[in-house]
Write a protein that binds this DNA or RNA. Structure first.
Length: 800
RNA sequence: GCGGCUGUGGCGAAAUUGGCAGACGCGCCAGACUUAGGAUCUGGUGUCUUCGACGUGGGGGUUCAAGUCCCUUCAGCCGCACCA
């Protein structure tokens, strides 16, 4: 038969939909498989080949699982709240609702064209009030449990545009829009107390099957560090300055202290500081820098000494100066450090610049040249002198601190609490009411969803407040507690909110009584296999694991870890090897490929182009090779005759079934396809195959190229749908050849090969070599010193 | 700076984990069928001074045997980034 993809792909997509074969069944007696891919943000640009790659991996796995008899949940949805839609809504003067609906429709039809086996009865849209009702519900539960709090913090603000900017939009301290100076402005921020779950999130990693680098990135993101808190007495005021350190063993080497420019102690004791104006000026200078800039200028340390207040080193009672410097952050530890220039590079740089003493307390380096951060014997440290290990010194110092009541063990995390509000329109309204008497009150559960009001002008307000602040009917309300007039919170949730629990909704997508039915959650959870991009491994995955752990703690979900397994696909690069981007003009549109070659070719090529986990450049002519392969598959219908097995092909078939079955599990789709290509080459070399064998081959190929294989199945006279036929099995005994070709080395050099019966003993193999004139000539007349024989692999003869 | 990953033909890549390096595909070369080929089919295709030698970024090592293990070095990509 000819390969006519244009006429068959739409036809089979319709048949599958009609038969509903990809709907996850409610039959909970069957074994389940929950495969999850990251739902897309439905941008106006439509699908990207990267989306296709991201979904194709678990698409193949899911199709295989169905054929293996699993009840498969392989859902799709849309993460539709967010800034890009809002911005283009402003630009084109259209409502984001309209744009979102239009984009979702576009994505849906594009996804369907590729033949993905998603369960389209469970589609979710995070901007649907039936969905975000439950996003708000979970937020309210967190609010009830004290995991939501409000604090004032510094944000990047452009006084010219009157807008709050992200770090990315304010690089170099200049506003990305007007290029004016950006300042740090304090602003009320809603936070979710994710830090409270830091240890649980870390612990949970021990029992899940994530790629090693995924785990590592999450661990680094959480950034747990163990150390100590210690109090340093200040002179000229009745207060101690609390610091955090991981190296309390070096305390005898402390020659100064540094605090963050924003440290509250400065304001508190302003009247005792002689150079307060200088300090204020420095602080103002720092405030101009964005966090980005501040962390970029690592080399040159700046700072100002506080004149009027000093500190006492609690280890040796010596008075030491206190500085303010922006290399100490208010957001980590206590915002104050003890500086040990001899053994910390940053402190060393600072001390050199400001001419501060450098006292060696650990032997092993040359502190006249640089800080020594390695291990060694303690010196100049009184009761620590002579100790040789860091651990022992730390323990001794900790004991000393606690005995004196001026310090204790402590833990710190790099992870910060999650800033949870945005001054934007296109997001879930935060269900909180501000009452003058009662304070912050949650919107009652029965009033959820708190609907996003319809607006025409949703440009952010002056001073960067949320567009919702302009909707009086939304803002003005009564306090649910006391009934007095009150005001609603007008900020909305960030993009990450809706995606933090979407995998739960898929289990029961249309439930109006709960976010999902408990029985269904019990059956489907955890997600068996989650695949997505590396870029979501920290934020999205950490956030959603946090929400899930919270729901587990309040008894709303049956398992603590949501994702049993996590893998990641690599990028598809442009044909030039660069990242695809509109500006470079190297973007490949999957629709063009489907138009020209068909969905099956697109799917095969994307999985064949290289290792699934690695970045691979697109190559137009390689796509043609995949088309040729499918044409050769279609051509097999012309030579397939009879039943049973073709002797010359039997072992090749069993080997291929084994290889493809295993490779899919390891996401080695490229070698699975290569194995099928090799089998097709074998078949054409033999010149014939049976109909049974062809059926086996197209069954193996079905998860990769479902349309053409479905068509062939029917051309061969079948009436069922191949997509739900049984996955082929293989006979291990038949994957083993009766004779194997092994390599023969003489003195370690490859000299040829011999055919031996599989598993042949050494003497049998050696006899064959002796009878081979060419091989035996290499050691004729020499002494055989040693024979190394590895069954079915190699024979190495050492002769002198 | 720290952490991770990667480095193999002209190109994308394989290599049962220490055992015939380059499977499979692209490209290229030759031939066939053709008025024609950017279609199809067949054969070939790591390099070189080609009965042999060399070859997995470079250098060194372990081993009968190294793409794979160890040491060292270089290059590229991706995270994190003054985390005390």
């Amino acid at each position: 038969m000819r390969y006519d993809f244009k006429n068959i792909e739409a036809k089979w997509q319709e048949e599958w939909e009609k038969a509903g074969i990809f709907h996850a069944s409610e039959d909970h007696t069957k074994p389940k498989f929950y495969g999850l891919v990251e739902f897309p943000y439905p941008s106006g640009a439509g699908m990207h080949v990267g989306h296709i790659k991201a979904y194709s991996g678990l698409e193949v796995v899911s199709r295989k699982r169905r054929m293996q008899g699993y009840n498969v949940l392989f859902p799709m949805g849309f993460d539709a709240y967010g800034l890009p839609t809002e911005n283009s809504a402003i630009k084109f003067n259209t409502h984001p609702r309209i744009l979102t609906d239009r984009n979702i429709e576009k994505f849906t039809s594009q996804l369907k064209r590729v033949g993905f086996s998603f369960d389209w009865t469970r589609v979710i849209d995070t901007t649907d009030e039936k969905y975000y009702k439950w996003t708000q519900w979970i937020f309210r539960k967190m609010f009830d449990k004290g995991l939501v709090f409000r604090a004032t913090t510094l944000v990047n603000y452009c006084p010219n545009c009157k807008v709050v900017l992200s770090n990315e939009d304010s690089q170099g301290g200049k506003c990305d829009i007007c290029h004016g100076d950006v300042v740090q402005k304090s602003k009320d921020v809603w936070y979710l107390r994710i830090t409270e779950y830091a240890d649980k999130l870390l612990e949970g990693l021990k029992k899940v099957d994530y790629l090693p680098n995924v785990k590592l990135q999450q661990e680094n993101w959480i950034g747990r560090s163990e150390g100590a808190f210690a109090d340093f007495k200040l002179t000229n005021c009745d207060e101690s300055l609390r610091i955090y350190t991981t190296r309390c063993d070096t305390m005898f080497g402390v020659t100064f202290m540094v605090i963050a420019p924003e440290h509250p102690i400065i304001e508190k004791y302003a009247d005792r500081i002689n150079n307060i104006a200088e300090l204020e000026a420095y602080k103002a200078e720092c405030a101009k820098k964005t966090e980005f800039e501040r962390t970029q200028l690592v080399k040159d340390k700046t700072g100002v000494r506080i004149d009027g207040i000093a500190a006492i080193n609690p280890a040796n009672g010596k008075e030491i100066p206190v500085y303010i410097s922006d290399y100490v952050m208010m957001g980590y530890g206590t915002g104050a450090i003890m500086a040990v220039p001899a053994h910390d590079e940053r402190d060393y740089d600072f001390a050199k610049k400001f001419g501060i003493d450098i006292i060696e307390v650990i032997k092993g380096g040359d502190i006249s040249k640089e800080a020594y951060t390695g291990d060694g014997e303690m010196v100049n440290s009184e009761f620590l002198n002579g100790i040789k290990t860091k651990k022992e010194a730390i323990d001794k110092m900790l004991a000393y601190l606690s005995e004196k009541g001026i310090g204790e063990k402590g833990v710190q995390y790099k992870m910060k609490d999650w800033a949870f509000n945005r001054q934007r329109y296109w997001g879930e309204p935060i269900p909180i009411i501000h009452c003058e008497k009662c304070g912050m009150v949650g919107v009652p559960y029965e009033e959820l969803p708190l609907r996003l009001p319809d607006m025409e002008n949703f440009v952010p307000g002056e001073g960067g407040e949320s567009p919702l602040a302009k909707v009086e009917s939304f803002v003005n309300c009564t306090c649910p507690k006391c009934g007095a007039p009150a005001k609603r919170e007008t900020d909305t949730m960030p993009q990450w909110a809706g995606s933090s629990w979407y995998f739960l909704r898929y289990c029961d997508a249309h439930n109006d009584e709960a976010f999902a039915d408990q029985e269904k959650l019990k059956y489907w959870l955890p997600v068996d296999w989650y695949n997505g991009g590396m870029e979501h491994v920290t934020r999205h995955m950490i956030y959603s694991r946090f929400w899930h752990h919270f729901l587990y703690d309040i008894g709303e979900v049956p398992v603590d870890e949501p994702y049993a397994k996590r893998t990641a696909q690599g990028l598809i690069l442009g044909p030039d090897g660069d990242k695809m981007s509109k500006s470079k003009g190297n973007v490949v549109d999957p629709n063009d490929v489907v138009d020209e070659y068909g969905a099956d070719v697109l799917r095969i090529y994307i999985l064949f182009m290289g290792d699934y986990g690695s970045a691979t450049p697109w190559n137009d002519s390689s796509v043609k090779g995949c088309k040729r392969f499918l044409e050769r598959i279609a051509g097999l219908t012309d030579i397939a005759k009879g039943t049973g097995a073709t002797p010359k092909l039997e072992s090749a078939f069993h080997k291929t079934i084994k290889k493809v079955s295993q490779d899919i599990e390891e996401m080695k789709f490229n070698t699975a396809i290569a194995a099928m290509m090799a089998l097709v080459n074998d078949i054409y070399n033999v010149g014939t195959l049976t109909v049974d064998e062809l059926k086996t081959l197209i069954t193996l190929l079905n998860p990769f190229a479902p349309h053409i294989t479905e068509e062939i199945w029917h051309v061969l006279g079948e009436n069922t749908l191949l997509s739900v036929e049984a996955w082929p099995s293989y006979d291990e005994a038949k994957t083993v050849d009766s004779t194997v070709t092994i390599a023969v080395q003489i003195c370690g050099k490859m000299r040829g090969t011999i055919d031996v019966p599989a598993g042949a003993e050494e003497d049998v193999a050696f006899d064959i070599i002796m009878k081979d004139e060419k091989l035996s000539s290499f050691f004729a007349g020499k002494n055989i010193v040693k024979k190394i024989y590895v069954k079915n692999k190699i024979f190495n003869i050492i002769a002198k």
